[in-house]
Design a protein around this nucleic acid. Sequence first.
DNA 1: CTTGACCCTCACGCCACGTCAGGCGTCACA
DNA 2: TGTGACGCCTGACGTGGCGTGAGGGTCAAG
Lengths: 250, 250
Amino acid sequence: MLTVGQVAEQLGITVRTLHHYDEIGLLRPSERSASGYRLYTDADVTRLQHVVVYRRLGFTLEDVALLLQDPQSVVEHLRRQRAVVAHRLEELQDLVTAIDRALEREMDNQPATPEELKELFGEGFNDSQAEAEDRWGDTDAWKQSRQRTAGFTKQDWERVKEESDSIHAAFFAAIDAGEPPTSRAAMDAAELHRRHIDERFYDCPPEVHRGLGDLYVSDPRFTATYDELRPGMAYYVRDAIHANADRQDS
Amino acid sequence: MLTVGQVAEQLGITVRTLHHYDEIGLLRPSERSASGYRLYTDADVTRLQHVVVYRRLGFTLEDVALLLQDPQSVVEHLRRQRAVVAHRLEELQDLVTAIDRALEREMDNQPATPEELKELFGEGFNDSQAEAEDRWGDTDAWKQSRQRTAGFTKQDWERVKEESDSIHAAFFAAIDAGEPPTSRAAMDAAELHRRHIDERFYDCPPEVHRGLGDLYVSDPRFTATYDELRPGMAYYVRDAIHANADRQDS
DNA sequence: CTTGACCCTCACGCCACGTCAGGCGTCACA
DNA sequence: TGTGACGCCTGACGTGGCGTGAGGGTCAAG
C-alpha cells in the first residue's frame, strides 16, 4: 500500500500525473485511507508500470486505456507503434541532416575562426598576421583590410586562397615559359594580383600596387615567402607589377 | 502577394497556423487587401519558411521568434538543437529496442503458429497431427490434449521438445547400457514419459499409459517413429511402460 | 503540542494549434 | 446581372497531458 508520493518516486512520474490518471479513470487506486489518501496496491503499481512504459512508447492515454483493457491486441499495437517510432526515427534522421546542412550554411556565414584559418593557410598564419599588425597596423590600408577580413567567412577565405593560388600559377606559367616580367602574361598576372588585393583587402590602385611590389623586395619576409615558391620570384613579381602599372598609366 | 491559402499550401501548413502566427505576432503579413485579406510578400514567405523549418526542428514558437530577431545566435541554437535531436534519436533507438523486447515477450505469450511448429518439429508435423485428429479426434484424451496445446506458446513447445528429447536420451542410455526394459533405468525413463504426457497433453495415469505403450507397438506409424531412432525401440518402450505401471501398482 | 512534510480537492494555465459558427469577398459561368 | 462554389475574415471554444498554485486536512517525530 503506497501513497502517491511513493509511487510517483518509484516510477519517476509526478503526483499530479497520478491524480490525472485517477481523474480520467485510467488508473484509480484500489483503495483509499480513512482520510482520503490514495493507496496503491502492488497490482496497481504493476498496472501503472505498464502505463508508464506505453506512454514512453508514445501511446496516448486513450490508447493505453485500450491496451490495458484488451490485452489480446497488445502485439498489434506494439507492431504499429514500432512502425510509428521507426518512422519518427527516419524523420529525425532527415532532420539531423537538415540541421547539419543548415549549420554548414550558417557556419559559412559566420566569420572564420583562427583554427579554420590555420587549417587553410598553415601554422605560421597567425604569427605573420601579428607581425604585420605590428608593422602596418597604423596604415589606412591595413585598417581597411582588417575591417574587411574580420567579416570573412570560411568560404570567403577559401576563395581568397583559390584566387591567390591561381595568381601564383599565372606567374609560374610566365616564369617557366621564359617570359620576362614585362611580358603580357606577367603583366596580366600582376593585374590579377592587383584586383585580388583591391577586391579582398584594401583599395589598391596601380600606384599603391607599385608600393606593394617594392615591399616584396625590400621586406625580407615577403621576399622569402615568394622565393620559397620560385627563386627570384619576388623580383619578378615586383617588376611585373611595375610594368603593369606603367601599362595602366598610358 | 499571396493569400493565406496559397501560402499554406506552398509551405505545407494550415491556414489556422498562419492566423495563429499573426495573432501572437510571430509573423504578421506585411500587407492587407482592401477587404482585409492577409497578403504575404515573398519576404514574408521566406521568413515563414524559416519559421517552418525551425518548428520542424522542434523549437517552440517563442524560440523561433528569438531566432528570427537575433540571427547572430542561429549557429548556437542550431548546435543546441542538433544535440537535442541527437538525444531524441538515441531515446527513440532505445525505444525501438524496448518495443522489440516487449514484442518478443508478447509473441512468446501468443499461441505458436503452424510455421513455428514446423520449424521446431519438422515438415511432417502438421500432417501427422491431421492424421491423429482423424484417428483419435473423438477420444477424450485427444480433446483434452487439443484444448491444452491450442494455447501453447512457442516457448511451451520448445519446452515440450526439450523434455521429449531428454526422455529419448534416457531410453537411449538404458538401451546402450544393455539394461532390460524392466530395469530401473528404463522404468524411470518410462515414468518421465508418463509425466510428460500427463503434464503437457492429457491426464495420463499408469493404466492409460499402458494403453499408449501398446499403441506404440500396434500402430505402425508410432512403431516406425521409434524404430527410426533405435531399432526395436518401440517394443522396448512399451515393455518399460508396462514394467513402470506394474511398479506403480504394487 | 508544535513543526514540517505529506496529502486532499478545486480550478485555472499552458502550447500550438483544430474546429466550428456566422458572415463577407471574389470569380467563373449562365 | 445574378448565382453558386469557393475562399477569406473574426471570434470563441476545445484538445491533451499535465504544471502550478490556493486553501486546507493528516501524520509522525521531537
